[in-house]
């Protein structure tokens, strides 16, 4: 009754989702070596490119992992499992917490793999900076878990894969995961996106050890608003699919 089994099986199911693991584990690694490998001595946003790109690719993989874990709800809805769950004693809150925990647990290997790759290309941070960067990345992922959940409520199961891919790529591009292409008003706009702060977690950890207040406020506001929307979507979503 504690929900521990539910959490465990949510994690197991996420780790068995091989299609999404290709995007969250393999793709970022391949991109990292092929792009950072040729630009080992370049700099970006004022820090060495392999370091910048390490955090950015770790964020990219983890975004995939979290959005698709939350988004898997779309498959559960299409199969009727989401409705079936509502006639068990499992609480909605436990269900939500399980999704969030499962998403974080599958994001961790995505982060760790790219960190390792970064080390092999000479990215170096001291222990405190590694710790800070990981913390910032985990905090910055919260809105993406919720985006995944909302997506799961909105799209039918067979549209999930393109929907997750599209959402992650757009946020990643605008946030500067593949490099900052923007300035002026556009840059100011991209700073309103949680993916901007994910992409800059490496730089911020190295330079100041933290996001500026703006980063924390934005991530907090996104998280709060999306959590509300996710709760609303859950409440609305009792119909037969």
């Amino acid at each position: 009754m504690s929900g521990a089994t539910h959490v465990r099986y949510e994690v197991v199911r996420s780790l068995r989702n091989h299609r999404s693991l290709v995007f969250s584990l393999a793709l970022p690694l391949v991109l990292y070596y092929s792009i950072a490998g040729g630009n080992r001595h370049a700099t970006s946003a004022g820090v060495s490119f392999p370091l910048y790109f390490m955090a950015a690719m770790a964020a990219y993989g983890a975004m995939f992992a979290t959005v698709s874990t939350g988004g898997h709800l779309a498959i559960d809805r299409t199969r009727g499992w989401a409705r079936q769950l509502r006639i068990t004693p499992l609480r909605a809150r436990t269900e939500m917490v399980a999704k969030v925990l499962a998403a974080y647990l599958v994001a961790l290997p995505a982060l760790a793999l790219v960190f390792l790759a970064g080390v092999t290309l000479g990215a170096h941070l001291d222990a405190a900076q590694w710790f800070e960067m990981t913390g910032l990345l985990l905090a910055g992922l919260a809105p993406f878990i919720l985006m995944g959940l909302i997506l799961g409520h909105l799209v039918p199961g067979d549209a999930l894969v393109p929907a997750v891919g599209g959402l992650v790529v757009v946020f990643a591009l605008l946030g500067g995961v593949f490099g900052s292409f923007f300035n002026g008003a556009m840059l100011a706009f991209t700073k309103l996106l949680p993916s901007y702060w994910l992409a800059h977690a490496g730089k911020d950890a190295l330079v100041s050890g933290d996001w500026p207040a703006q980063g924390w406020i934005l991530v907090a506001v996104w998280t709060l608003v999306l959590a509300l929307l996710a709760a609303l979507a859950y409440r609305r979503d009792t119909g037969r699919v």
Partner: peptide, 14 residues
């Protein structure tokens, strides 16, 4: 209460 809903298939990946 236990129920079997129409088209309530078991979750995938289990």
């Amino acid at each position: 209460v236990g129920g079997m809903l129409q088209s309530g298939f078991p979750p995938d990946l289990l």
